[in-house]
Design a protein around this nucleic acid. Sequence first.
DNA 1: CGCGCAACCTGTCTGC
DNA 2: TGCAGACAGGTTGCGC
Length: 301
Amino acid sequence: MPELPEVETIRRQLDPELEGLVVEELEILDPKWAQSARPSALADAVSGRVIEALDRRGKYLLLRLAGDGTLVMHLRMTGNLLLAGEKDGRPGSRQPGDARLYRPADEERHLRARLRLSDGRELWFTDPRRFGRGFLADPEELDAYFAARLGVEPLSEDFTPDLLAAVSEGRLAPLKSFLLDQSRLAGVGNIYADEALFRAGLHPLSPAGSMRPEHHVALRDAVVAALQAGLDNGGASIDDYRDSRGEKGSMQDEFLVHRREGLPCPSCGEEINRIVVSGRSTYFCPRCQVKLRRRPRRPRR
DNA sequence: CGCGCAACCTGTCTGC
DNA sequence: TGCAGACAGGTTGCGC
């Protein structure tokens, strides 16, 4: 479910709400949620600490705690992070179980971890498929963890055409697989990979290393534009995704090609095709998205 | 090291 | 109505 725009939407909503509050208690209802040898030790280590900020790296949410610790959370496929309850006991905010919230019974049924906050509210980590995880890391551990897994942030100034050229050089994997590889580019998932390749006019099966300089520019711009569209629409709610208030995003109504098999291409009217690339459904326009030839090797003298 | 695929889970939908 | 099978936003580990 959640890719960079969905995770960032949650972060932007929650960061100003959480700053300065104390996590009075972390309750882990599903021991599998804790990516830690002893879930009770994780709960104890987080309980009682002051929240400094909520940051994001790739699709990870980073709850910064006073004293150099970070509660790292990943929503994986179906996780949600909901802010529930009444601030300082005053009415107006939503309660867990509020009928206006998304399927309240299911939220409670799928509750995996709960942070009780010092203003009376609660942060709920819900997750039907139980892939989501949370763990505590100190700064050195966190650096090592991300260095091994995550590449450049696509919305940072470091994401340039030259960077894209460097990380794709010599790669034979299809562009679709390349965009899903978090160690090259962090935050793009199945939805925004399809949307970006359509915007760039590139075929999902073209080898990543076949791009020429104009393609590096086009794909960089397309990734940024696709992610920005997601942010502008509050994320995509195909099925489970909700923001921190339990509201749906609207990006699913703005998809250009993703999940639009058989529908007309917004640019040329040709029918959108669906193929499977490294196990993931992939949607593209066979007319607008050209397949690049493998780049010839530099001749040797 | 690069790459594809199964596995991890639960829920929903489709077709017989 | 029941049931089998396909499919779903992500990441990891294994085999080649």
